[in-house]
Design a protein around this nucleic acid. Structure first.
Lengths: 227, 227
DNA sequence: TTCATAGTTCGATCATAATCGAAGCGTGAA
DNA sequence: TTCACGCTTCGATTATGATCGAACTATGAA
């Protein structure tokens, strides 16, 4: 009988304040990195790492490694249901605690992700290029079509340099805030730096925010129209 | 930041195996004495007393003293909801080796779950409606088909009221005793209250048991035949 | 009264696990 | 290559709390 029933296991996982904070932060549906979750929970990265391992082994989280970041999200809707039920009960008891404010809307709009463009803008670019046949998505491999090469060259990017690199030119990168794909790889990086050179966007030092200039606003919409 | 959010407090209360056993035992809706709960949890009376004090202070239990006995019951339906959600999650993970489902056969047969019908009866209703094409399960979204709308209307439920509500009409709810789906959402609630109005079922006060009248027995089988 | 039963309180023991510093690992950028 | 960064692992400390024996209180029965 020392072997507790499984609901105790799960409840105990949620029952630690640090872990509860992390799970609460993940209820927005967005995936967050280990560092972000550590900050949310108010513990060091080491401690957070330990907690995240436990939550993952407990089946409450789904994780995805991307570059040197590790993104965590709730494993399933069931998990959110439990949290919601708990919050309902807690709220009914009047011990309500306000949640932390929403993320920076600027970050949501456009941000740097490994030197390429992510956020709303990144997705719009990806979608526009895909639907116009510039990018082709075959069997998990993303390639630039001939039409696409033409478009990119006209846009002012020299593809010969990129062709010679060993690193893949086109990669898909899953945008966790939007849960959609955007363009990574050397072409993704080249596009961002070129747009910066054109004065369309400005990268904010020490932040991941990419701000769009008024000139960039219209130029971008023209170059990458939503279909 | 040491001050944990309230959901951690509650989850931690449920997170102890002994307490989880007690709470599980109380899910039948019956009130149990401290000694009985101690036996259920497999701990001594002293330990049980300590746990029960904590559960009570945490607002999860309601207690009634009668003679030299002290009876405990779940404080509210919210508490049962949390436990049910936890059990659903635990069952979904396949980590279940402990007893599943309520011991009480009445509860297993039919019970209230968020104001809709759960247990054998709830599943039979769901299965019957699904296999007759009244409910359609597409891409995680459950919808009422035109045939279904027709059926429900003939059954005596006014759908216009439900259509106007923001809350989803059809939701799936995992039945923790049977590990099958049953119908939740506003339609699920409407069906239960309508069957109550028809005199098919009776909800037992202070308990989650739904008892089926003899009239309801046959009527239900006719309205929701197993295919 | 005396006894038995139901439950609580106290105190000591013991196990668990939360925490963080320090060091190590892997990836990306220059 | 070197450096920076994100994250993990290890180890030690520390706090918490689950557990039960023993003593105590309260209620009911004889």
């Amino acid at each position: 009988m020392k072997e507790g029933p499984n609901i105790a296991r799960i409840a105990a996982l949620i029952g630690d304040p640090a872990r509860a904070n992390m799970l609460t932060a993940l209820m927005t549906g967005k995936a967050l990195t280990a560092s972000e979750l550590a900050a949310e929970a108010g513990v060091t990265l080491q401690t957070a790492s330990s907690h995240l391992t436990k939550l993952d082994q407990g089946g409450l989280l789904r994780q995805r490694k991307q570059g040197r970041h590790k993104y965590f999200a709730l494993a399933h809707d069931d998990v959110a249901s439990v949290l919601e039920a708990l919050m309902g009960l807690a709220a009914g008891q009047g011990h309500l605690r306000t949640r932390i404010g929403p993320k920076d809307p600027e970050l949501r709009r456009a941000r740097v992700c490994y030197n390429h463009l992510a956020g709303d803008l990144g997705i719009q670019m990806y979608d526009s290029m895909t639907s116009r046949g510039f990018l082709k998505h075959d069997d998990k491999v993303l390639t630039l079509t001939d039409q696409g090469r033409n478009f990119i060259t006209k846009f002012g990017i020299d593809l010969t340099g990129l062709d010679q690199q060993k690193a893949p030119m086109c990669l898909e990168c899953l945008d966790w805030s939007e849960r959609r794909s955007h363009l990574a790889g050397s072409l993704g990086r080249a596009l961002l730096s070129h747009m910066e050179a054109l004065g369309w966007v400005k990268r904010t030092q020490g932040s991941r925010v990419v701000s769009v200039t008024s000139k960039g606003q219209t130029a971008f919409a023209k170059a990458f129209p939503a279909q």
